[in-house]
Design a protein around this nucleic acid. Sequence first.
RNA 1: GGGGAAAUACUCAAGCGGUCAACGAGGACAGACUGUAAAUCUGUUGGCUACGCCUUCGUAGGUUCGAAUCCUGCUUUCCCCA
Length: 426
Amino acid sequence: MNFIEELRWRGMIHDMMPGTEEQFAKEKTAAYIGFDPTSDSLGVGNLVQVMILLHLQQAGHKPFALVGGATGMVGDPSGKSDERNLLDAETLQHNQAGIEKQLRKFLNFDNGENAAEMVNNYDWFKEMSFLDFIRDVGKHISINYMLAKDSVKSRLETGMSFTEFSYQLVQGYDFYWLNTHKNCKVQLGGSDQWGNIVTGTELIRRKSGNEAYAVTTPLIKKADGTKFGKSASGNIFLDPKKTSPYKFYQFWLNATDEDAENYIKIFTLKPKTEINELIKEHQQSPHLRILQKELAKDITIRVHSVEDYEAALNASEILFKTGQEAIDGLKNLPADLFEAIFEGVPQSTVPKKEVENGISIIDLLVTTTHFLSSNGEARRALKENSISVNKNKVNEEDTITFSHVINDSYILLQRGKKNYFVVKVN
RNA sequence: GGGGAAAUACUCAAGCGGUCAACGAGGACAGACUGUAAAUCUGUUGGCUACGCCUUCGUAGGUUCGAAUCCUGCUUUCCCCA
């Protein structure tokens, strides 16, 4: 199956320039995607772009991953309703390094002919003077053309700085540069990048007369129309320090049936037959959550490691069991395994003395652990019957004593089904 | 530069002298039902030493027994005219 066909059945194509498919069919083709260093870690949203590059490489083409050291200094107005704050050079540097490191994990940079390559547009912009830029680049693209872009048009009312206005030219020049120096003929990206990409192909056509192509991916949304890649506690990042592997695993496991079907196509490399098989199995017995489990497993292993996956799976199984079985499971857990499992679950430490004296449940939830932020919230939660201690529901009058401490060292608090908190006693 | 309008909790949005911790909607969280799904129903959504008290309606003052509501200065935003 060729590159474009692969993307197509996975639902990863939003738009494509005429001739793109032929270009990929004709020869080994180089293509690039840019990553903005707005954070020091990629989020799951960026994972779509990473997967595209992976498919590209697997189809025998050559991927370029561009880190936007220069474009990051300008700020892409696409999809933004407000002017962005500029990041300082130090932050950008730090972010670039983080992103580069993550990209290296996914792509093969060392397989000869179609090895992936990492480039940073700062390298070709740092030497360029403003005058050079407006003479060599600006001269080829008309204001009228730039104004017609959605990213600009939508901001004409509310205002936009010259800096952001010029963004499309800067990105356009990237494409031109890669085209002339690296023979890169295609730019890939999210659908919000279409305007910027087309400015690039236009620039290439006018400056060097070459043909250049574009493929964009659809913006991933959840079935209910909300943004993908966020959880209650914020963005889901690939960096385990920002999003623990446990949380990361849970994020995928919590996908709705509908979403899971889409995600497994987009975020895993599993072949079509296997995916169809999984979907069928899932539909036959949806309560087994096969899709979600496979999805979460595959991605967690690829982004983190097999060990991280196993730990997350282990933790999930123990945390989500119910009844006596769950309590026994907790009690039988050796201390070291416990540590590993609950890494990533919020926790705090309480002196043994205090527990021996007995703590009211409200004090425990709020004052000693800060699991909940106010007594009022704690009372509310208790009234809602949503608080459990070691998997047992508790009410407002309950007092926590040493008899609640499991294995001499911890207490497991829970709000609702999915929010856990570990109290360590020592 | 001149004139007008507006700023309310996570967001939108009521309220225009007491009955306002502030209608309503969305969101979020929780409970029931389930499959850690969806849909649905229900509850909660400022704080506290809690049938009471305290702090909140851009900001600083003022009028009043009493203000989110009236007045004044300031800040910000939007609109109209130049």
